[in-house]
């Protein structure tokens, strides 16, 4: 699904990612852990194509294609999805309008029929229910005045609607209490499938109790310093990052 080879990335002329190699197979769930500032969000932005992230070396293949040649919206239509660490507030655009525009834009790009208002509404309600996303939230401008938990649930709703092939979840657990964490991780687990890969970025191990990964990578200062199975997350919980990072 995703092949990253010796990826070097500059932000504002400063090297942030310093040679990342990572391979995520179809249906696999990988966790990326690491201290603040290690480059986790940078990696997620590079994958989504955000401006200002300059690839100086290396390559990224997504479904066998060079990701760099694709526009931001092409990547999305090809099934790449990033759940933002800090979802953006968009005053004046209701969540509902946004969801419909996004879904139909992707369907159109893939040559599928666009959904009419009735079919779309039915689909949204079906997906919103389990995530506790209320009608009221759908009518409000996107993310404006949403609590931290509401923003994260709205991100997962987008993911559920858009049904990506590769989802990158950037600190989807941050700022969530136990109940909200459960709702969000149940939502994510419901989307696990043999055709869908996920990269779960997190600072803490607790999310990985709910979303159990196939592999865990530790990112530090722009490099992957360790890779292991799900037990690596527990080890980190015990020892903290300091030991591993220094190792």
């Amino acid at each position: 699904m995703l092949e990253i080879k010796d990826l070097h990335v500059n932000v504002d002329g400063k090297e942030i990612l310093k040679g990342i190699t990572l391979s995520v197979g179809t249906g696999e769930v990988h966790a990326i852990m690491g201290p603040n500032g290690s480059g986790k969000s940078t990696l997620s932005y590079v994958l989504s194509g955000r401006e200002g992230y300059e690839i100086t070396k290396g390559e990224i293949l997504y479904k066998g294609k060079d990701l760099r040649a694709m526009e931001i919206e092409e990547r999305a239509a090809a099934g790449l999805f990033l759940a933002f660490q800090y979802p953006i507030e968009i005053p004046g655009v209701t969540t509902m309008t946004f969801l419909k525009t996004a879904l139909n834009a992707q369907r159109k790009a893939r040559g599928e029929e666009e959904l009419d208002a009735v079919k779309f509404l039915r689909l949204v309600r079906e997906k919103a229910g389990p995530l506790n996303v209320s009608e009221d939230m759908l009518k409000r401008p996107l993310n404006v005045g949403f609590s931290g938990g509401e923003k994260k649930r709205a991100e997962i709703l987008q993911m559920a609607l858009l049904e990506p092939s590769l989802a990158v979840l950037d600190e989807t657990d941050s700022g969530l209490d136990i109940d909200a964490l459960k709702v969000v991780s149940d939502g994510v687990n419901a989307l696990r499938s043999p055709d869908r890969s996920m990269i779960v970025i997190t600072h803490y191990q607790r999310l990985l109790n709910h979303i159990v990964p196939d592999k865990v990578h530790v990112l530090s200062a722009g490099r992957i310093v360790r890779t292991g199975g799900k037990e690596l997350a527990h080890e980190l919980e015990e020892t903290g990052y300091a030991d591993i990072v220094e190792a």
């Binding site: 526009e71 931001i72 999305a76 968009i90 834009a105 401008p141």
Partner: peptide
């Protein structure tokens, strides 16, 4: 960027924001 990352093409994203 956020709108485009959800598959909305740039022209449509711009018009959504201008209309908003």
């Amino acid at each position: 960027f956020y709108l485009r990352s959800r598959g909305i093409d740039e022209a449509t994203a711009r018009s959504l924001l201008i209309r908003a």
